[in-house]
Design a protein around this nucleic acid. Sequence first.
DNA 1: TCTATCATACCGACCAGTTGGTATGCAAAA
DNA 2: TTTTGCATACCAACTGGTCGGTATGATAGA
Lengths: 210, 210
Amino acid sequence: MTAKAQATRERLLVAAKQLVMSKGFAGTSIDDVLKATGLTKGAFFHHFKSKADLADQLMRWYAENDMKMFRTFLAEAEAAHDDPLQQLLHFLTDFEAYLCDPDHPPRGCMYALYTYEDDHFENSVKDFVSEILRTWTAMYIRKFQEVIDRYPPAREVTAKQLAEMIVAVIEGGLILERAHRNPGMAARQSEQFRAYLELLFPTASEQKAA
Amino acid sequence: MTAKAQATRERLLVAAKQLVMSKGFAGTSIDDVLKATGLTKGAFFHHFKSKADLADQLMRWYAENDMKMFRTFLAEAEAAHDDPLQQLLHFLTDFEAYLCDPDHPPRGCMYALYTYEDDHFENSVKDFVSEILRTWTAMYIRKFQEVIDRYPPAREVTAKQLAEMIVAVIEGGLILERAHRNPGMAARQSEQFRAYLELLFPTASEQKAA
DNA sequence: TCTATCATACCGACCAGTTGGTATGCAAAA
DNA sequence: TTTTGCATACCAACTGGTCGGTATGATAGA
């Protein structure tokens, strides 16, 4: 694939993402994508063998970018602190800033979008979404386990519970954000979650204050 | 409208809800609904003047049922306890049981589904969804305010923050539940939120233990 | 260096099936 | 008899998808 072809593929994916995020996948026609890019059917079906294939490639492309961002933030946080809890809080605040960034539409999460239209997707796509969410969760679990190992939680809690909660909280926040057309609600949810963490690990907070 | 006509309308709405919850709104055709009910176009367009009208009526019907359940659970909780925090916890556990009830598919929340397809809906519908979510939130806010007024929170927090968080947590939990085809995840999120509440209002927990 | 060959990248007309929506008819209820 | 509640037949627009074709190179043989 030449660089130009690569660029064309990217144009299609970018436009598709934009449209899908505001109209849903089934609600986005191939013609919509072509109108948005100025390309034609020939171009589309050269890069994607069907609409279902677009669903697949779009999700994988989205997840790849997503993961890249995740890892960047995580690496940054790990470089900035030794303490695992401080790393987590740092990561979350970075992520909150990202969520609030006005240059960053469209708002929302494509994993959530796909799950609410799942009857249209092949099992491979659904499994992929599930797997990606599990990967996110697993990365959180690791960090939370480190935290729990170091600081006694004020209440019995597992790393998995906390990991799933932060994912849920952000997904839910994004929904509220969209429903109320009020950017920042997802970030505020993450903030509340941090408040929970501070109550859970009071000894860590004391250490930080010291 | 006769009783039979009312029943027909209900049949259409029930089928539409089922289909929309698994395929999305745009992904559900009128013919799908008719196939599911055994009715015909004549029946459909007698009750709904367009597909957009179905979107509107379906959401209002859904919200009405939803609210009815909410109020029932709340009334029950208020009858069972004097203490506002105990009422809230009672409500949440009831709600968790409802979320886990296997007789209660399809899983998910139609408000979330609509927000992820919002470009297809008229503003009146989008505004309605926003308003309904606000109503839910408002009911939580009232309760949390009572709790905060009675018990000093271990950390500064507003009733609104807690109200939005429980909504977000459940919405997010429902997404995870769908993505992983793992019923019960939403309920587990609610459980974690209750853990947060117990840490926030320790004096109340002591009183309960006493 | 020129040219023949061929794969890549894209175009745009076209197709069959599906979409939301309409017009009409008709039986039963009011 | 009139209205309500639904069935049937139909339509134009749009859907995802196909297909013949073309422009653009890269490569390799002369």
